[in-house]
């Protein structure tokens, strides 16, 4: 009589297991190759130091909103770091596609959604490293927490959300083109989207087409949400638009990524 081992490949428990295994694999990869995280950590640190140093006198322009440049730029640098972290998560998948690991993953039974969720979770977790680095440097530079500890929470929520969104955007491209080189498109897109928002100055400082673009750019709402605790008290009127923007971007990019993944697996 032969013994058969039946493994359930459906259900929430199995899906959570697969997602957590993929996320854990990514985190173990960082521990095994710490150099992978260096650019993700260094670039936002360079940004926070450069932007606060070079643009410090912006606070002397009337209406800037704060007299401490770190209160404005820290969140921007942290979100840029989150974008890099998200794209980095998609790059890990590009590497798996190039070396054949992803094809082996697709041969396994079960839904494809946990593969996506695991990669996104890895990116969101990874984003905590640059966010913490930026906040530590900014605190040394004089960042004030007028909104209390909740101010830090909003930054972590915003950066994790942005990492998830840009991971999904990156995955959409990676599943389509299957190469690491395609990631440069997403790097440029992510970087540009951040610049076309209220990253460095308030919206009333902008004019012309930039004002129009920044006003409809959902990242502007995310920045307002994440930055509010450094400029004053937290308010619901600045919180919900940020959460809606993050939710909306995650949903749209998630649907695109899932569509490409299904095409890839077909």
């Amino acid at each position: 009589m032969s013994a058969a081992v039946v493994v359930r490949t459906t259900g929430l428990g199995h899906a959570a297991g697969v997602a957590s295994a993929i996320c854990g694999r990514g985190m173990r990869r960082i521990r095994a190759r710490p150099t992978l995280i260096m650019p993700v950590l260094l670039m936002p640190l360079i940004f926070v130091v450069s932007f606060t140093g070079a643009f410090g006198s912006l606070t002397r322009v009337e209406g800037y909103g704060t007299d401490n440049i770190f209160n404005w730029m820290a969140v921007y640098a942290a979100l840029q770091g989150a974008v890099f972290a998200g794209v980095g998560g998609a790059s890990a998948t590009a590497e798996d596609l190039e070396n054949g690991f992803f094809d082996r993953l697709l041969l396994t039974p079960g839904s494809r959604v946990p593969i996506l969720v695991g990669t996104v979770a890895y990116s969101a977790l990874r984003s905590m490293i640059p966010t913490t680095g930026v906040l530590l440097v900014s605190i040394l530079g004089g960042l004030s927490l007028s909104g209390g500890p909740l101010a830090l929470l909003t930054v972590y929520v915003a950066t994790a959300g942005m990492a998830a969104v840009f991971c999904l955007v990156g995955l959409t491209v990676v599943y389509r083109f299957r190469t690491m080189r395609s990631m440069i498109l997403i790097q440029v897109f992510g970087f540009s989207s951040m610049f076309l928002s209220t990253g460095q100055v308030p919206i009333h400082f902008m004019n012309g087409w930039l004002h129009a673009v920044a006003r409809v750019n959902p990242i502007t709402n995310v920045l307002r949400f994440a930055r509010q605790g450094f400029l004053g008290d937290l308010t619901w009127s600045l919180t919900w638009p940020g959460l809606v923007a993050l939710g909306g971007m995650t949903l749209v990019s998630g649907l695109f990524a899932l569509r490409q993944l299904k095409r890839l697996a077909a």
């Binding site: 912006l58 322009v61 790097q187 440029v188 100055v201 004019n207 012309g208 930039l210």
Partner: peptide, 28 residues
């Protein structure tokens, strides 16, 4: 050329953005 383009597009984008967001700064 795909590798060369970011080196042209990105600095131009940055210049366009800075021009429209730093108009008040030139009065400092």
């Amino acid at each position: 050329l795909g590798n060369v383009m970011p080196g042209i597009v990105f600095p131009l984008l940055l210049a366009a953005v800075y021009t429209h967001q730093f108009e008040r700064v030139i009065l400092l």
